[in-house]
Every structure is written in C-alpha cells, then in structure tokens.
Design a binder for these strands. Structure first.
Lengths: 230, 230
DNA sequence: ACCTGAACACCGTTCAAGT
DNA sequence: ACCTGAACACCGTTCAAGT
C-alpha cells in the first residue's frame, strides 16, 4: 500500500512521502490500472482513494470529475498506441497503425465504450492525423482525404469495439468462439440461413487476421476509386 | 397517472389498448423513452418506477437487472431498424440497411455505447444475417462471406458510433462542425499538418453522405477483390 | 497550493410482506 | 403470479477545515 522506495531522506515520522506526491499523471495511471483489472465498474473514487492513500478531495483537486478522468485514461492508451512511428509503404504504415490501435483496445477493452462517447472529441485529432498522413501518401486526391481517412478510422474503431465486446464476455478465446458457433448452428434455419452457413467459419477464425483482411479490403477500395496516378 | 380500468373501445386516431398491468414490453418501451430523452444517465429505476407508477420490485419481477433492460432496449431499436425489407440490387439493399442502422443510432445515440458492450452478443446475429444475405447475393465466394460481412457491419457501427459521440456533445449540427473546424484550424501546423488541411472539408460536409461514401468505398473493395463471375 | 474526511444526494438491488 | 415500499450498500461529489 504505502511502499515508499523514496530516494529522498526526509524528516518524516508520519509525514507524507513527497516522492509520491499526488499528481494528475499518477491518478490517471492508477485509473488505467483499475479499469484494466475490472472494467468500467472497477473504477470508483473509493477504490482509487484507497489505492492512492488519500481522500476524494485530493483527487478532485487534480481532476474535475469522473468523466474527465475517463477521458484522460482513454487518451493515455490511445497516445501510447500511436507513439511508434510506422515504417514502410503507406499501405504498410496504415496496417501497422491499425494493428496498434486494435491491440490497444484489445488490451484495454473499456476504451471502446469511451470512444463512442464524448472522449472521442479529445482523441480524434491525433488518430485522424496519424492515419490521414498515410492516406495523403497513398496518392488519394486532397478533396477525398477526409472521407477516406474517416472510413479507415471508423472501421478500425468499429472492429476493435466489437472485439472488445467479445473480450468482455469470456476470457478463453477458442472456447468462446466455439460456444458462439454452436449457438449459431442451433438457430432457426428458416430465419437465419446465412448465419448457419457461416457458423463454421467462425469456429477457427483469427480476429486479428480478419481485422487486417478488412483493412486490405478497404485499401483495395481506395485503389479502385482513386487509382495511383500513372 | 391515467389508470384505465379495462380495454377501452377506441374510436379515433391511433387505437392504443392500454392495460394496467405491467409487462416487460411496457417497461422496455418506457426505458427507450427515458434514454432518448436524457441519455444513459437518464435511465434510473426511480424515474422508471415513477413513470410507470410502481415500485422497483415490480420492475425486477419482469427484468433481471439494469443491464438486461439496456440490452432489451438496444434490441428493440435495432430490430425496428432491420424491420423494413430493402429492395433493389444487392448494393442498393446494403446501402439501405446501412442507412437505416445509421439513422437508428443517430436517433438513439445511447445505443452506440451498448453495442460495444455485452449487448452486442444478443444483437449480432440479426444484423449479420440481414447484411450477410446481401453479401451472398453480391457474388462473394462463400469462404469470404463472414469476413466481408464483418467488415461492413463493423464499419456501419463504427461510423454510427462516432456520429453518436458527436450528437452527444452538441445539438446544433452546423454550429458544432464549425466549432470543431475552427479548433482544428488552430492546431499546431507542425504537428497536425493533415488535420489543418482537412479542417475546411469538415465545415460543409454531410455525415450521412460521408457515411454512404464509405459504404461505396467498401463495396468497391469487395468488387475489386471478388469480381463478379463473368 | 494541496490535501483530509465527514457528509449529502442519489443509485441499483433486495426482500418480507401484501394481493 | 404479481406487486409494494422500506431498507441496504454503494456511488460521485462537495466543502469546511487543516497544512
């Protein structure tokens, strides 16, 4: 709880450790930990104050309210995912960016719900910037930059969100897919002919692979609609 | 409120048989109303019991907990959006389905957050079935049905969710876009060259049009990767 | 400036009791 | 079977008071 590990020798009998003074950064870090451990309902001010060994008022000094804390936590995760500069062809870079974002949401499933809420406002510019640059490099005409970039970003977060929705439900991946596939196989064939046909494809598919296949499909569409100048 | 002894013979306008008895259906209906009116935080058991003139225990008799209620409400909205059978070419039908889902989330923004949570489990089969049938009709080989359908559905919900995120923040659409565009124009040009270039495209864009352009882009990709048998 | 901690209004949920 | 309503544990947030 209050491990000190402090470098500074202090005149403390019962004084607060200055080394781990509370800060916005430390609060956000703890929030991410709690969210990772137990999902959105795992982040409460009581648990947070206990973890940080303070009172609620201390946290409110650094953070306006729970919403802002959630936004800051989301921001931290997305920023980390965008930190690595991708290399290679524009296509390769788009795949790498998409991969990193997908993995980040997979590891922090609570981010998905945030991004379809008001936290999106704060995060959008950085994500659009990172993807948009590569769209420009792809040779897409400037008039279509925004549209094309939006499609990619919306797909990335749509796919990652559904991945997160699944991750929420069951930890064991293959067992989970098996359960769903079996459930789907049992649906009324009159009403769900497509689902039944496809149930077995679900059984041994790889989410990440499927996701990247989707990126490639969209990249194909971009090339088809905006062929590289030649 | 208006407690109405039996089945009143109605004569004019919409005939609405009112029964006093509480029912799951009536509860879900009220929940959707509350969510529409004030978002996710607008749905509380207190407001709900008041609206339905009962106690919490009565609601718990019909519904297991708040989560189940939220899932049921989400289901109701999505089902309504899928109710209309689309007509025309497979492409037209996919556009129509996408439009209907987009509009449904635009009208009920709280649905977006639900679909990236556990409610997705319950809703997925119907959505996939509706879209998947058209993918089959498109001439896509069966081995790719699931992948292609997933891409479309993930894009639809990704785009709709971000639309919902925006809708949450401000009611007035054009004023909102203007605010964002202005904010974007003010970003550091060193770090956000793409965003700045694109800020003006944002100013007079139409969300729905943009969304449908995205659908067309993906349809292009499908045709490029799986050309119709000649 | 930064932090404490009791207090407040509100939340989802339960349950003995009524019909 | 269906409903009532008081009660419970917990939540985000505030604020007078301390350093």
């Amino acid at each position: 709880m209050c491990q000190d590990g402090g470098v500074a020798p202090s005149r403390s009998g019962r004084s607060q450790r200055r080394t781990d003074a509370l800060s916005r950064e430390r609060i956000v870090e703890a929030a991410v930990d709690l969210l990772d451990a137990a999902g959105e309902s795992g982040l409460t001010f009581r648990v947070l104050t206990e973890r940080l060994a303070t009172g609620p008022g201390a946290i409110y000094w650094h953070v306006a309210n729970k919403g802002e804390l959630l936004t800051a936590a989301t921001d931290a995760v997305v920023d980390a995912a965008l930190a690595a500069e991708p290399t290679g062809s524009p296509q390769d870079r788009i795949r790498a960016l998409a991969s990193n974002l997908f993995d980040a949401i997979d590891e922090h499933p609570w981010v998905a719900a945030q991004l379809s809420g008001s936290s999106w406002q704060a995060t959008a510019p950085r994500v659009l910037e990172a993807v948009g640059r590569q769209v420009g490099a792809l040779g897409v005409p400037e008039a279509a930059w925004f549209t094309v970039t939006s499609v990619l970003v919306q797909y990335i977060f749509g796919a990652a969100s559904q991945e997160a929705a699944n991750a929420d439900v069951l930890a064991d991946r293959t067992e989970f897919l098996d359960t769903i596939a079996t459930a789907w196989s049992g649906l009324d064939p009159e009403r769900y002919p497509f689902i039944r046909t496809v149930a077995n494809q679900l059984r041994d598919h790889d989410d990440r692979e499927e996701f990247l296949a989707g990126i490639d499909l969209i990249l194909s569409g971009i090339t088809a609609q905006y062929p590289p100048a030649g």
